[in-house]
Design a protein around this nucleic acid. Sequence first.
DNA 1: GCATACAGACCTGTATACAGCCCTGCGCAC
DNA 2: GTGCGCAGGGCTGTATACAGGTCTGTATGC
Lengths: 232, 232
Amino acid sequence: MSEGRVEFLYQTLKARAVGFEFRPGERINEGMVAKELNASRTPLREAMNRLVAEQLVEFRSGQGFFCRALDPTSIFELYEMRMIIETAAARRACQRATTSDIAALRDQLEADGLTTAGLTIREVVTRDEAFHLGIARLVGNSEVVRHLDRINERIRFIRWVDMGRRVRTTKGEHLKIMEALEARDSERAAAVLKTHVMRRMDEIVAAVREGYSNIFMADPEELFDRLVPDGD
Amino acid sequence: MSEGRVEFLYQTLKARAVGFEFRPGERINEGMVAKELNASRTPLREAMNRLVAEQLVEFRSGQGFFCRALDPTSIFELYEMRMIIETAAARRACQRATTSDIAALRDQLEADGLTTAGLTIREVVTRDEAFHLGIARLVGNSEVVRHLDRINERIRFIRWVDMGRRVRTTKGEHLKIMEALEARDSERAAAVLKTHVMRRMDEIVAAVREGYSNIFMADPEELFDRLVPDGD
DNA sequence: GCATACAGACCTGTATACAGCCCTGCGCAC
DNA sequence: GTGCGCAGGGCTGTATACAGGTCTGTATGC
């Protein structure tokens, strides 16, 4: 808060938008939200406009701000975009990352533990994103990291759902990716990443469907604070 | 204007930011700009916040809005990001674009004429971007188009400089790319695109240097309204 | 029962006011 | 001549007020 009220509102509203605490298509009442966050509408609208530029919120002239839609096509496109950036990043990381930076990524991966047991869905996704951003950082191109981060925000909600849906083999696949990076095997790294990241349209449709049901439940936020399903 | 004052301000300010009509690092005086555009500071700041989210303008709490920096490293990173997206787009276009959509892109390319003679630098870059966005559109993924567009805005100024610097073989390379797309030869399309798009760091440093000298000249805008150098 | 028109409340869009901070420029001391 | 401190102006940050438009809900007619 000391570093700017708009910044605080931006972060708070972003978190809400990312997690679909505003329901898809819902009109966002500036007055109510402003009062709730102890601010006036002026800085709130400034923060909202940033979210509009990030596609986390929609704006219709004369009507105000609305929560973005949640539809399978958009999510699918975002997954593909994510795959494009990540595979390109992995290829470049294999070619130009320093051995010590790669080693640091492995350390980070191992520091997260060998299993996802005992973690909440949210925590697992956070760690997953951190690993993938770590790969992007190996490229040494801040734009790659930034774009990936922006995309992650927009699919994070569905990733929570997805992570809860099935026992993901996240950890094992991360290790495989890590090995490919250490071997500096671009093609293998890209190939493993591709299958690790990408989802089929029918999987996405199912996740979106479940996402909707979560959104309209009583306390949807708690859902993702439960522990991940046991890995076998 | 009818479709929202903020939208109008956003478009106007974006054009200025893209073309470095604000000088790099310059503080943007809200009061002056607002008066100039016949608006109050409230909608102006809303528009500015969108530009902040798009990295076209910087914001420092307590100090206001500043024009973004113009430095070779950022430009280089953006070029690489552009290359990542474009090569991935071309590969996918080869695989999944319909033959008629590809034919439509060729029509667009030929409608632009067989040479860049008689066009201003601005016009050539506009057409160049349109062709590349056309490839991105072949993928059928709106995110790919959007991200490419965002990146293009941030390097457009340097592309103007670059297009004026040397007789670019733009048109010929576009034809080669087009042929690769028609042959659905992913690898060739990606390879040609890569050399067509990418710039070496020393080229970028030179362009940025020239960019600065243009920015601090009397009437920098006219510079890019001159005709492109004769192609031999 | 259903569609339509109207009225009222509500909400958005923008201007403006004002408090507080930042920066500049001047003066003073060294 | 140079560095530091202080005061003033100017700019930013936010709240608030108000005008205009949008939506809702009701009442009326078919």
